[in-house]
Design a protein around this nucleic acid. Structure first.
Length: 486
RNA sequence: GCACCGUUCGUCUAGCGGUUAGGACACCGCCCUUUCACGGCGGCAGCACGGGUUCGAUUCCCGUACGGUGUACCA
């Protein structure tokens, strides 16, 4: 049987970084096995629905390089893939359970339920629907139940959980897991608004969509017995389950928006490459070899196995993410992000720059910045005349030695006919040797004159990229302002 | 409270009965050097605890502690 997995988010807002990892693992698993990756939108909670959230999910996954074979967008043989469009299916299935005695009608109001829980907590017992005393099909009797239904009373449908039995399954990540049905609540299957709860919809859809492996977050582990019970109530075999470890805050609590960035778009806006985020997040809880950190999507697909997924939650280490971004900054083909640099240049009102030139600047400065967006500010002098210079740096490097040697160096540059790194280096070296000077004596002053800053790439490389005219223009401008100010 | 899951350097992890417990990030030194980076070299630092099983436990089993998740007509 071929592998079929699904990523089943609910459209309640932005995509969480943990959801991204779940989506990724599903994708990697599907691709590794040559199977099918499905996107299903779980929008059965009308009160939490957020307009545009579904589109955000799709575009975020696309950005990350996660593709779906079947989805709301693409369709597929098991559609529709939006649960709100499948309510009739759930209703029919609830009826099956009602008829075979595995589900029942209940009429309690939320106030009554709250009271029940309060009583139970006061008595020190676990809150759980008590079907022997609440208002439902069993306590009311079939006749009364029918009468109320005919009258149009509000009702919900609950799962009839066996009083005492063992519910066990084999989790692909955790191994044997078992629960006692005593601790399982008579879960509501159909809400009074006619929509199913997650539990019913999830089980019915996974079955109907022929899902073979349910790969989801660990927060679902405690409700898995309900799902197992549902499968058997329908007389179905359950799929394989794999419960992923959680992504944690620094304090080891479940990663939440209260403590920093947790939404994918936030990382995207900061300038992280999708490759960085995907690579990083993949390694939070999974590790194929441990002797390397950088993986392409294809390499991850090739080596992904659920057996290698960890059991314990992983703290999201922002520092390491940044390191990885720097690595990608250094190895990613500049062609892929020239446009990002151009965007930030446009924001500064600079538009007359060629792609080719931007690429050269990227290569010149990529080791010194983390994001493409920083190129335009870190290397502003590459695109426009410096507006001033670093005063502190000037005081430090503008020595008497420098002041007397620099005019001669400038002349050398002015007369240079080959304005390349090796040629300039040779010429200047010659001058230094003749005058018993070292690079130390003039390079920083030169840097000051050309960039106005104390940090940057090698000066000869910088000059080569800048070109003779732009270099001399900068030198003249700042030289004047320095000597004039003196 | 109850149920379940988990526990190797600060963090991500390798390890699947015998290892000087390995790697990466971070941190600290040193080197390279025209600045800053990059890079190179080195250092710091870990098997939660207690019982078993075994010739031998980080590794297997049982407790304890600690942590997390769940406990909704949310997903």
């Amino acid at each position: 049987m071929s592998v079929r997995v699904r990523f089943a988010p609910s459209p309640t807002g932005f995509v969480h970084i943990g959801s991204l990892r779940t989506a990724l693992y599903n994708y990697l698993f599907a691709k590794h096995h040559g199977g099918t990756n499905i996107l299903r939108i779980e929008d059965t909670d009308r009160t939490r629905f957020v307009e545009g959230a579904e589109e955000e999910i799709i575009s975020t996954c696309r950005w990350a390089g996660i593709e779906f074979d079947e989805s709301t967008e693409k369709g597929g043989k098991c559609g529709p893939y939006r649960q709100s469009e499948r309510t009739e299916i759930y209703r029919q299935h609830a009826t099956i359970l009602l008829e075979n005695g595995n589900a029942y009608y209940a009429f309690d109001t939320s106030e009554e339920l709250d009271k029940m829980r309060e009583r139970q907590q006061a008595a020190g017992i676990a809150p759980k629907y008590d079907r022997s005393i609440m208002r439902n099909q069993y306590t009311l009797g079939d006749e009364e139940t029918k009468r109320m239904l005919d009258e149009g009373a509000e009702f919900c449908i609950r799962l009839k959980v066996p009083l005492s039995s063992e519910i066990a399954f084999n989790d692909m990540i955790r191994g044997h897991v078992s629960f006692s049905s005593r601790d399982v609540d008579d879960q509501i299957l159909m809400k009074s608004d006619g929509f199913p709860t997650y539990h019913l919809a999830n089980v019915v859809d996974d079955r109907l969509m022929e899902i073979t492996h349910v790969i989801r977050g660990e927060e679902w582990l405690p409700s898995t017995p309900k799902h197992i019970l549902l499968y058997s109530a329908f007389g179905w075999d359950a799929p394989q389950f794999a419960h992923l470890p959680l992504l944690l805050n620094e304090d080891r609590s479940k990663m939440s928006k209260r403590k920093g960035d947790v939404f994918v778009y936030q990382f995207r806006e900061k300038g992280f490459f999708p490759e960085t985020l995907v690579n990083f997040v993949a390694l939070l809880g999974w590790n194929p070899t441990a002797d390397r950190e950088m993986f392409t999507m294809q390499e991850m697909i090739d080596s992904f196995t659920l057996e290698k997924v960890n059991k314990a939650g992983a703290v999201f280490d922002y520092k390491k993410l940044e390191w990885m971004q720097s690595e990608y900054m250094k190895k990613t083909d500049p062609d892929k992000f020239v446009y990002m640099v151009r965007n930030s240049l446009n924001e500064k009102g600079i538009s007359e720059v060629s792609d080719d030139y931007i690429k050269k600047v990227i290569i010149l400065l990529r080791e010194r910045v983390q994001f493409p967006t920083q190129i335009a500010s870190f290397g502003d002098y590459m695109f426009e005349l410096p507006k001033g210079y670093d005063e502190e740096f000037k005081n430090k490097v503008w020595t008497e030695k420098a002041a007397s040697a620099i005019p001669m160096v400038i002349e050398i540059l002015r007369n240079a006919d080959e304005f390349t790194q090796p040629a300039l280096h040779a010429k200047v070296q010659e001058f230094l040797t003749e005058n018993k000077l070292g690079f130390k004596d003039i390079m920083n002053p030169l840097r000051l004159l050309i960039t106005g800053k104390s940090v940057g790439a090698g000066m000869f490389e910088t000059m080569e990229v800048l070109g003779k005219d732009a270099t001399l223009q900068r030198i003249d401008t700042i030289f004047q302002s320095i000597t004039g100010a003196k």
